[in-house]
Amino acid sequence: MMRWTEVKRHLHILRLFVKYSLMSQMEYRFNFITGIVAEIAFLIAKLLYVLLVFKTNLHIDGLSPDVILMFLGVHFIFTGIYMGFFFQNFLILGQTIRGGALDMMMTKPMSLQFLVSLRHIDLGMAFPNVITGIVLITKGWNASSVMWSWETVVGFVVFLLIGVILTYCLMIIPSLLSFWLLDTSAAAEISYALWDANNMPASLYHRAIQHIGTFILPFFLITNYGPLFVLGKLSTAQLIWALLAPVLFFFLIRTVWKYALRQYNSSSL
């Protein structure tokens, strides 16, 4: 049973991680700034899809280019969250496992998964993406003829939270493979490619892809369900799945994690 004091303790540590990460980054200011510049370059490259959508006047399943902006916007928000909170941690998790730094962390009286998942936080990477995302969502929302109301906004935020959990569960998979494989860079590459691809309404794709992206690797839940909810296009069944999926996938990742640790072999013989 998770007690409230435990949650509070973990939040306190998370605050320390944010502070320490920021302090560490300030030691390498040039790197910090060029990192943000690189992130903005990627952001601009991704914004070319906005150009594509408008230049071709792309309509997907009755959604106009303006409304498609909402999906793109949600994609950017989650890219920001992923880059800011998880990316670095997942990137070095493989190294942590192979290099044996995990050993030390395992002996701490805290959730190990928490320690390795949120140790390095990079808010600089998050900002440009999140801001771009908010701008795109606002534009899309205004163009969609859906009024701003408390219910829709709160519902949208709930879907953002669901998306965060699913982002965590899906993007940690390549790093978890480091428990068994020496080099997981290709698996990571695929996960990045899938992540970047997930910026359009799912109805663009073939049914089979839609099903895979909803039930097996539920990427579409991250970018699609929030906007669909706002547009009133989410069925009851989809709503139930949206609430069930994060619980199910988090449980799955948790199980794999525990299994991996059980047969963890440390770094050297």
Binding site: D183, E189, I190, Y192, A197, N199, L204
Partner: peptide, 22 residues
């Protein structure tokens, strides 16, 4: 890294799939 080679081929096609449907 055998798995790596085949997988990195797949990742090259992911954006192409998106654009194919677009």
């Amino acid at each position: 890294y055998r798995s790596n080679f085949f997988l990195s081929l797949i990742s090259a096609f992911v954006p192409a799939v998106v654009q194919y449907y677009i």
